[in-house]
């Protein structure tokens, strides 16, 4: 039994944002690259509007389980969902945070405030995570479909070079697992994500 080398990715979002498909595409790309991979998805009651999360574990092992303090990469499609997942972050984990919020019905109805973005970013940073915030929803809208938040975030992940999968392999997986009707916009959104990620890392490098 050897030390752990797996890459544990957690995708957290809201039903309808494309969390499950996103996880599937990462998984298929990894499989195509010949890597051991597992995808876990939590759904059921969490249809549209409910919390949805999916995990992708690339590396040897049997489960797709990402427990407390085990997550290497968090793709948060919604800020509150990022907060919900914060306990799972490994110190030094990378978080890509879509800053566009979707306020849960229960929160509004109970009159409780939605935590502010800086609060959420701080909470994530307090876990030792490196937070990269961006408005993926705006990029998705720019690509032509607000629904394409997930492809944007996938692009960000690919652009950040965090996956052991080449861009070409990933693109093939996108092509294989996206319905042809939305393929063009999905790929456009994905590329915008890659660009945003490149720009962001450029800026961060500059600042450093």
């Amino acid at each position: 039994m050897s030390a752990d080398t797996s890459l544990r990715i957690l995708l957290a979002g809201v039903g309808g944002q494309g969390v499950l498909t996103g996880a599937r595409v990462i998984g298929e790309a990894a499989l195509a690259a010949g890597l051991p991979v597992r995808i876990g998805q939590l759904h059921g009651m969490s249809q549209r509007g409910g919390s949805v999360e999916a995990t992708v574990v690339i590396g040897p092992g049997r489960t797709a389980f990402v427990g407390a303090g085990a997550c290497d990469c968090l793709l948060a499609l919604e800020p509150l969902e990022a907060l919900r997942a914060s306990a799972r972050l490994k110190p030094g984990a990378q978080v890509w945070l879509n800053t566009a919020t979707l306020v849960p019905a229960t929160l509004g109805a109970l009159g409780r405030p939605y935590p502010s973005l800086p609060q959420i970013e701080q909470a994530l940073a307090a876990r030792g995570a490196r937070v990269h915030s961006l408005d993926a929803s705006a990029l998705a809208a720019r690509a032509g479909a607000a629904r394409a938040v997930s492809p944007v975030m996938l692009g960000v992940l690919v652009g950040a070079g965090r996956l052991p999968v080449s861009e070409r392999q990933f693109e093939q997986a996108m092509r294989d697992f996206t319905p042809p009707r939305v393929l063009e916009t999905t790929l456009r959104a994905w590329r915008l994500g890659i660009d945003a990620s490149m720009q962001q890392s450029g800026k961060e490098a500059e600042r450093a």
Binding site: V14, G15, M45, S46, Q47, R48, G49, G50, S51, A68, L80, E81, L83, R84, S86, A87, R88, P104, A105, T106, L107, L110, R112
Partner: peptide, 10 residues
């Protein structure tokens, strides 16, 4: 332990 968060019920 993870903090309690508002549930996002559908």
């Amino acid at each position: 332990p993870p903090g309690r968060r508002s549930r996002r019920a559908r």
